Amino acid sequence: MGCGSCSSGGCSTSGSAVSGCGSNGTCGTGGCNKMNVFDWLSHMDVPTSQRFDVVEVKFKGGRKEYFRNINQLEFITGDYVVCEMASGQHLGTVSLQGELVRLQMKRKNVVISDDLHVIYRVANEKDLDKHTQAMAREMPTLYRTREIIREMKLNMKLSDVEFQSDNTKTTFYYSSEERVDFRELIKSLASEFKVRIEMRQISLRQEASRLGGLGSCGRELCCSTWLTDFKNISTSAARYQNLSLNPAKLSGQCGRLKCCLNYELETYIDALRDIPTVEAPLKTKKGVATLQKTDIFKKIMWFGFEKDTNWYPVAIDKVLEIVELNKNNIIPESLEILTPQVERSLEKGSPKLNSDLENLDRKYSEEQKKKKKKKSKPKNRNNNNNPNNNKPQPTTPSAQ
């Protein structure tokens, strides 16, 4: 479900119909939702003289820039327009216009000035043909450039190539963990492709947002659909949420920690304020109980004894009582005495502990019983399915 303005390549401006895109590639129906913004002020009629004359235009990879509409042209979201660039002109799609553009520029700290580039016109068939030809050069150029990088033994990863619509400039997007001297590379590329070369380094998160993909949750990547601000993510975010520190599970498509680790972090930090810090194991007459895990939102802490495989849930207030008793050199009987109290409190409002696990065990045990019953059914040796068995047997006449 892509379009010509994104890197998914699901459809192009050549007019090939794509599932989910009713306007054959222009994504006027929302077939490509990469970094889309819903214009909730579109129904408001504003006089032409009072309209905000800056328009947001989207290019390949979800990149958005702002251009002035000095000619007061009428646009519809999804229209292809020819925009002014530092060198030449480029073709993009109108993604947002009106007062929401003013708010977006304020959020991104973009200064409204006369230095902003302008929109020349709405793209015609000739502009679209040139843009299609420029896009057709991108993949062969990408493969050839990777071969040149491999020959020069440069430590960089080339992820995407974008040709300007007038074929005068090419932007190469690459990622690298160290500084790369690509002066010889630029000379080689300029002599081979006969265009102006621009090398733009991007981070691994930006690379994943340009390429897109599906996350472990089964949905499209957040960075390629709606997330624009990449914040620092540390392993402490996983510790606060009691997640296992497994790099394979905590890493995203970019190889860095998942951005979604920060989504619920503040909620967990607020809930952890009521959770006591158990610095030492709890001492009971049955033995020493060690903290195994904490259910943050149910406010229950699970403890286990050394030679016992069972874990015992204890409410937070009871844990505080035992800690105070241990400080006064008083040892309670056991944690098992406190377990029924927790279960009674859970029966009143919340579901039982591990109810979801019990339901799964019950489900699979019932399925196994059904399978055993099917296997234990005796096979009919008389082969009742044989149609000849249903015929009446001939009888011999009795002697009179």
Score class of each variant (00 low, 15 high):
Ser14Gly: 15
Gly15Glu: 13
Ser16Pro: 11
Ser19Glu: 14
Gly20Val: 07
Cys21Thr: 01
Gly22Thr: 00
Gly22Asn: 01
Gly25Asn: 06
Asn33Glu: 09
Lys34Ile: 05
Val37Met: 13
Asp39Val: 02
Trp40Ser: 15
Met44Asp: 09
Met44Ile: 10
Asp45Arg: 07
Val46Phe: 05
Val46Gly: 03
Pro47Leu: 07
Ser49Thr: 10
Phe52Ala: 03
Lys58Cys: 12
Gly61Pro: 01
Gly62Glu: 02
Lys64His: 01
Glu65Ala: 11
Gln72Arg: 12
Gln72Met: 14
Leu73Pro: 04
Leu73Trp: 02
Thr77Phe: 09
Asp79Asn: 07
Asp79Trp: 11
Asp79Arg: 09
Asp79Gln: 05
Val81Tyr: 03
Val82Arg: 08
Val82Leu: 04
Ser87Arg: 13
Leu91His: 09
Thr93Asn: 13
Val94Ile: 10
Leu96His: 01
Glu99Ser: 09
Glu99Arg: 15
Arg102Tyr: 10
Leu103Asp: 11
Val111Lys: 08
Leu116Asp: 00
Ile119Tyr: 06
Ala123Cys: 08
Ala123Ser: 03
Asp127Gln: 07
Asp129Leu: 15
Lys130Asn: 15
Arg137Asn: 04
Arg137Ala: 04
Glu138Pro: 06
Tyr143Asn: 13
Arg144Leu: 04
Ile149Thr: 02
Lys157Tyr: 06
Phe163Arg: 06
Gln164Asn: 07
Asp166Cys: 02
Asp166His: 01
Thr171Lys: 00
Ser175Leu: 00
Ile186Glu: 03
Glu192Met: 04
Lys194Met: 07
Glu198Ser: 10
Gln201Phe: 00
Ser203Ile: 04
Arg205Thr: 08
Arg210Trp: 00
Leu211His: 01
Gly212Leu: 07
Leu214Cys: 07
Leu214Phe: 12
Gly215Asp: 08
Cys217Pro: 03
Ser224Gly: 02
Asp229His: 11
Asp229Glu: 12
Lys231Trp: 08
Asn232Arg: 15
Arg239Leu: 13
Arg239Gln: 05
Gln241Tyr: 00
Ser251Ile: 02
Gln253Phe: 08
Gly255Met: 00
Lys258Pro: 05
Glu264Phe: 13
Ile275Gly: 13
Pro276Arg: 03
Lys283His: 13
Thr284Val: 05
Lys286Val: 11
Gly287His: 08
Gly287Met: 13
Lys293Asp: 08
Lys293His: 05
Thr294Lys: 10
Trp302Ala: 07
Phe305Ser: 00
Lys307Tyr: 04
Asp308Thr: 12
Asp308Gly: 09
Asp308Leu: 03
Asp308Ala: 05
Glu321Trp: 15
Glu321Tyr: 08
Val323Cys: 12
Val323Ala: 06
Val323Thr: 04
Asn326Gln: 02
Lys327Tyr: 07
Glu333Gln: 13
Glu333Phe: 09
Leu335Val: 06
Leu335Pro: 11
Glu336Cys: 13
Leu338Arg: 04
Gln341Asn: 01
Gln341Lys: 14
Val342Gly: 04
Glu343Tyr: 09
Gly349Lys: 14
Leu357Val: 11
Leu357Ala: 14
Asn359Ile: 15
Asn359Thr: 12
Lys363Ser: 15
Ser365Arg: 13
Glu367Ser: 15
Lys370Val: 14
Ser376Ala: 12
Lys377Arg: 09
Asn380Val: 11
Asn384Ser: 14
Asn385Met: 08
Asn385Leu: 14
Thr395Phe: 10
Thr395Ser: 10
